[in-house]
Nucleic acid binder design. Structure first.
Length: 278
DNA sequence: GTCCAGGTTTTTA
DNA sequence: TAAAAACATGGA
């Protein structure tokens, strides 16, 4: 997508679907908040970002050309042509088309793999407001201050020597021991996040599930949102309901190489538009 | 007080 | 093996 430097800001002129609210509030990331109408503030890749949308323009405040190219263009997946992908997905069935059309501006973020892993460990048997709270406290307590009240996501190294008691301020419950196991195994490369990038996806699945507290669902979320493996297909309670009601008999593989994108549209659509009681 | 939340592990039959 | 129960916490 085309962008320009205006004063000290980056302005994206959207030629492809991109809705900031839909993208940041569809349950794939937990560190951005809407601070005013259409304006979001948060942290990713150790950088504080203020980003807002005005129709087809998206403005990244005070962002340099270098940071935009190296960090944010990749984070917001700006090189992928979602129009083409959604056109293909919509052919799958009428329900798939409905899901694509419900929130057409969703893009799959390319987050930091470790942050995605840790975030979705915290997400298990939990609700989104509380997930955000726990992650926020994790960053405040163990990350580095970046700007004002904004903190970086702590690295495995920052957590590896802690004990469960040290994580008590997070109020993460039984997930604390999982966070620590993940930090240790990623730090000592028992689970090598670099190698996972180039692994066959089934090997990557086995690798990630070496971590205590990481099962199929957390694993798929990590692969999709942290490694940008767009064929990964997280099956949570919502997706199970949706598959049964809207895609009976289908499996994730049926959706093809961009199944993960299909999943995100279905997930958001099911949570916000489908009444499963009828 | 009960139920539930983008699940996984542990226990039980 | 497969199905329950347990796991912390907090809001509805």
């Amino acid at each position: 997508m085309k962008f320009s430097l205006v004063d000290d800001d980056i302005v994206i002129n959207c030629s492809e679907p991109f809705d900031l609210g839909q993208t940041l509030n569809c349950g794939q990331c937990f560190r951005f908040n809407e601070v005013s109408d259409g304006c979001f503030e948060g942290v990713a890749f150790n950088r504080h970002l203020v980003i807002s949308q005005d129709n087809d323009k998206i403005i990244l405040k005070g962002v340099s050309k270098e940071d935009f190219k190296q960090i944010w263009a990749k984070y917001f997946d700006l090189d992928l042509e979602y129009n083409n992908i959604k056109k293909e997905l919509s052919k799958f069935s009428d329900n798939m088309k409905q899901a694509c059309d419900f929130a057409p501006g969703i893009r799959i973020l390319y987050q930091d793999p470790w942050e995605a892993l840790c975030s979705f460990i915290i997400s298990q048997n939990n609700n989104i407001p509380r997930i955000k709270g726990i992650i926020s406290r994790l960053c405040e307590n163990f990350g580095k201050k970046i700007y004002d009240n904004y903190y970086s996501f702590p690295e495995p190294e920052d957590l590896k020597d802690l004990c469960e008691q040290d994580l008590a301020p997070l109020r993460s419950g039984f997930r604390a021991k999982y966070i620590l196991d993940a930090a240790r195994k990623v730090y000592n490369k028992e689970v090598d996040m670099q190698l996972i990038h180039n692994m066959d996806i089934d090997d990557a699945r086995i690798e990630l599930q070496k971590i205590n507290g990481v099962g199929p669902k957390v694993c798929e979320c990590t692969l999709l949102y942290g490694f940008h493996r767009l064929e990964a297909f997280p099956m949570d309670v919502w997706m199970k309901r949706a598959m049964k009601a809207l895609f009976p008999g289908n499996t994730p593989e049926d959706f093809g190489p961009f199944a993960g994108i299909a999943q995100q549209y279905i997930f958001h659509y099911s949570r916000n538009a489908v009444d499963f009681n009828v």
